[in-house]
Amino acid sequence: MDLLYKIFLEPFVQMGTAPDLLVQTLWEGMVGGMLYALIALGFVLIFKASGVFNFAQGIMVVFAALTLIGLHAQGIPAFVALALTIAVMFALAWSVERIVLRPLVNQPDIILFMATFGITYFLIGFGELVFGGDPKTMITEELFLPKGSWDIKMLGGFVSLQKIDVAAAIIASIMVAVLSVFFSKTRIGRALRAVADSHKAALSVGISLEQIWVIVWFAAGLVALVTGIMWGARSNVSFALEIIALKALPVLILGGFTSIPGAIVGGLIIGVGEKLGEFYWGPLVGGGTDSWFAFVIALIFLMFRPQGLFGEKIIERV
């Protein structure tokens, strides 16, 4: 009985007696969710264009953030460093297309997937060689990102909103909206979907596969840069940041690998779900649920919608 009470009643009693903490948990979940959505977006863009799961997305986040900090450390003003980092991410996209993807056109997806492992290990080694393994502090002030918090008194307590989290949520929303419009309303967006369906068919109607791949890898690089700045501002920038890419996996399972809105909704569900789960039900199992709770949510969804919430249902003739 005691266990049933702790599972089904106590958390809701806690929500009722300390509503400020519930609001705080929801807020933390939403911020986390938006950031997960940003990472997931990087995966989605490349998956849509090539049908490949880009294993290198996590290290791209670290690489972009370290490049920005590294350039600034050389005395380059923050916004010039930001522009140069964008140029570096373009160069990376171009190199990936030229050196890795182009020779692999029409190869099975698994080959391309394995190639992204190669990109990952190259970027880890190259990044450590150039920037070292020391943690770096994100140049938040130089980029005019806010510091501190707003403590809002409400519901008999207070809710603390970190200004950087608010900025992260706003910037992530804008980024997602712009990319959604770009890829759904423009010619490039349609070309991208065509490439995702069939490389050969896309080539036959005159779509430049090379161009599309450079564009999506560049877009994924930009998303990685924004993600790196935001996550870096919340903690610091080190190679540990690469691990957070794993948090995007349940988001992708939930939202679908090909849907930009799916990445956002999936991110929010996972973010809020794992925070609520850890805060209210975590103590029942000794805590630390946030490392696996997201996967449980994703698995439950998978049972009912294998293609994810917004994923395209694949119907194959047999």
Partner: peptide
Amino acid sequence: AGKEMQDQSAQWLAVRR
């Protein structure tokens, strides 16, 4: 968990509680 090292928001929320 290792994956949560750079987040920890749920843990510190529980500390606040």
